[in-house]
């Protein structure tokens, strides 16, 4: 029974992390139909920036709690700089081309950023562990969990709710939904579509960086850390139905719980648990859990 409980707790903690990591990808795809491979690099950039800024903050003896602010600030910075740079500097020249071409463009960006990170920060690992341990830990179901996990859970909830609110309750959100449905028609109606693309991509980049920045305290920040994240984020987004916020949440939850169950009860299958989930879901829901119906073209 206790084992079951800790399976669920571990699963939920992992899911909250997965959701933060995947939501930016699904947002960008939902609006712009771009599978952004550079998502992994933005995640890594967020982590590196966080390790540098928070490290600087703590090294100068500022109040330790402020290091959480530094984590958030680094995500915002990475998003505000890299988002417009990639979208205005490259992607906008390619709109209207095949999805695969756009995907390859982002892959090229990924390759360039991987080496750029190496040139800036070197190949040695960075770590910024203080924010992880500072909050202490709680005992639950006979096991000790760091409070930081609860913080992650809260962040993912805030991100999810905030995005849902913006999309459904604000005027800009409603306009964005119009852009998603038919960008050409929206442009005709006077909506400034390019601006929506710019904002979406920037927010998506920022979310990737949020994932990296808040992961940084619990891992060692190393070159290549973004690679694994790409495929995880893809899988979660596809399971949920690309572009669906609800889907990303549910997809993250499913993958998280299945992986946790595998670790607890059947460590042998952990390696491909996520892909098994993906195959099973796609078998029964060929377009993911939540997919928007497409207009039939004749």
């Amino acid at each position: 029974m206790i084992e079951l409980l800790s399976t669920v707790v571990d699963g939920i903690i992992y899911s909250s992390w997965l959701f933060i990591v995947a939501v930016g990808l699904t947002l960008i795809y939902g609006v712009m139909k771009i599978l952004n491979i550079a998502h992994g690099s933005l995640y890594a950039l967020g982590a590196y920036m966080a390790a540098s800024l928070a490290g600087y903050w703590l090294a100068h003896g500022y109040p330790p709690l402020g290091s959480y602010g530094m984590l958030a600030l680094s995500a915002v910075l990475v998003g505000l700089v890299m988002g417009p740079l990639i979208e205005r500097g490259l992607l906008r020249f390619m709109y209207g081309k095949d999805e695969v071409v756009l995907l390859l463009a982002t892959y090229s960006v990924f390759l360039i950023l991987e080496d750029a990170i190496k040139l800036i920060w070197g190949v040695d690992s960075l770590s910024i562990a203080e924010p992880y341990g500072m909050l202490g830990s709680v005992d639950f179901a006979g096991l000790t969990y760091p409070v930081y996990s609860v913080l992650l859970l809260a962040i993912s909830a805030v991100v999810g709710v905030a995005l849902a609110w913006v999309l459904q309750r604000t005027r800009q959100g409603k306009l964005l939904i119009a852009v998603i449905h038919d960008s050409e028609m929206s442009a005709v109606m006077g909506i400034r579509v390019p601006r929506f693309y710019l904002v979406t991509f920037t927010v998506g980049a920022m979310l990737a960086a949020v994932g990296g920045a808040f992961t940084a305290p619990m891992v060692s920040v190393v070159p290549g850390m973004g690679v694994e994240v790409i495929v995880l984020a893809f899988a979660v987004a596809v399971i949920g139905g690309l572009g669906s916020l609800k889907g990303a949440a549910l997809g993250a939850l499913m993958v998280g719980l299945v992986r946790s169950a595998a670790v607890h009860f059947l460590p042998q299958v952990e390696l491909f648990s996520i892909y098994l989930v993906m195959v099973l879901v796609l078998l029964f829901r060929p377009k993911g859990l939540f997919s928007s119906a497409e207009a039939r073209k004749i």
Binding site: L90, F93, M94, A105, Y107, S108, V109, L111, E114, D115
Partner: peptide, 19 residues
């Protein structure tokens, strides 16, 4: 040390100029 950057930039050139 920077072969990925060379590769990525070469590919971007191809994508942009030889779509």
């Amino acid at each position: 040390n920077t072969w990925q950057m060379v590769l990525g930039a070469s590919m971007l050139l191809v994508i942009v100029f030889l779509p």
